[in-house]
Write a protein that binds this DNA or RNA. Structure first.
Lengths: 227, 227
DNA sequence: CTGTTAGCGCCTTCAC
DNA sequence: GTGAAGGCGCTAACAG
């Protein structure tokens, strides 16, 4: 199997438009300092060639990875899957988060993690090292796992905690509706557009209790989302 | 937000083990030509430092991306999500595929695509250019879309067609059980470990009809999976 | 505002 | 069997 290279690269676009790689890059990243006419010229070249930047390359050059990591409890996920009753996690959160990501040019990658295992940190660290996500989303029972939130905080990776009310690092939001994940993702995206984490998990932990309160607010009377 | 670099790289491992980067790389990729003792030394250095290769970097240097792309029908997915009845796609296929991927060090990324739209090709091409997946998995109604299979075949990207019996490029397999996706993924992985594609979609197309046949075989009397 | 230079982390090709 | 050099595609510094 031949080594697969990118079909059309930024280089081709630059040649086609008769500008430097940098200018193309600037257009891609929608930077201000580009003359409108240049922008148009480059853009048309991009369209003509059907160019799409490689996220791997983008990430390699120190830019964003355009990847959001979502952590989900493994055992539970597998059990649900076997029982074919996994109407839980995916439909409520992952899909919502996925849609938000897609709308923003991001990709959501779901990672299954063993909670009741002291490997959690290692697993998380490995996933982060491999994927280098711009953000992470946590779901129960990971949302309040200090080992996880601590690691994320230390690495300065933006993350959201779904189904958690406790204050602390990261954005905490209760699942007051099916839009929670979407909300979470967008918050992360809005934050710094970098390192967003998402740990998705079954909603029958602390979460379930709050659910009875319906669309209630948090203890401060504000919508269920703390900064 | 500071430019995020990889914490521990192959370079650190090499230094720690007192060998060249190359040797470390060889150990990572499990290549034969490495003396057992060297292998052990390097491996322990890897463990000690908690090193995990960056898939972005791996992909950049012409290696695998360790990413499998799964295509799913967008509208349908969103509709299901809104109606909260999406017990369909994820639990049956995606989760299975996800598990298989995880077991093999791969990641499954789900991409929502508009089927009844002539943008399909563009969308697929864009996703491929951005992600550069090692393989793709197609699900109804994409499994038999010639625009999709054609593009994949032309680019020589291995792919599986779930819920499709028609012969042609790629691996076709019917969903004779909840293990279909898992099966599909493993086939792709087994293939050439490169470019695996997966287009997941609701199971109410041609698929539904076959389902009545239960775990039946295909018209050739073989298990429901053609090469 | 635009072009040039350097380098990200890793793997491939070629020497030793 | 191992090391050294080169480059993948892209962007972040610096010039001009």
């Amino acid at each position: 199997m031949a080594r697969r290279k990118q079909a059309v690269t930024i280089k081709h676009v630059a040649a086609e438009a008769g500008v430097s790689l940098q200018t193309v890059s600037r257009v891609i990243n929608n930077e201000a300092s580009v003359r409108p006419e240049m922008k148009v010229r480059v853009q048309s070249a991009i369209d003509k060639l059907g160019y799409v930047p490689s996220i791997a390359a983008q990430r390699m050059s120190g830019s964003r990875s355009y990847i959001i990591l979502a952590l989900n409890d493994r055992d539970r996920t597998i059990a649900d899957w076997r029982a074919r009753q996994g109407t839980d996690w995916v439909d409520q959160m992952l899909l919502g988060g996925m849609l938000s990501c897609a709308e923003n040019g991001y990709r959501l990658i779901i990672e299954l993690v063993d909670t009741h295992n002291d490997h959690v940190e290692r697993e998380l660290a490995a996933a982060i090292a491999a994927l280098q996500p711009d953000g992470v989303i946590l779901t129960p029972p990971h949302s309040d796992n200090p080992l996880i939130t601590g690691l994320l905080a230390k690495r300065q990776i933006p993350f959201a905690r779904i189904g958690s009310r406790s204050t602390g690092d990261g954005i905490a939001l209760t699942m007051d509706d099916e839009g929670a994940a979407q909300q979470a993702t967008q918050h992360l995206l809005a934050l710094g557009h970098r390192s967003i984490g998402f740990i998705a998990g079954p909603a029958d932990y602390q979460l379930s209790g709050w659910r009875g309160h319906g669309r209630s607010r948090d203890e401060h009377g504000r919508p269920a989302c703390h900064g």
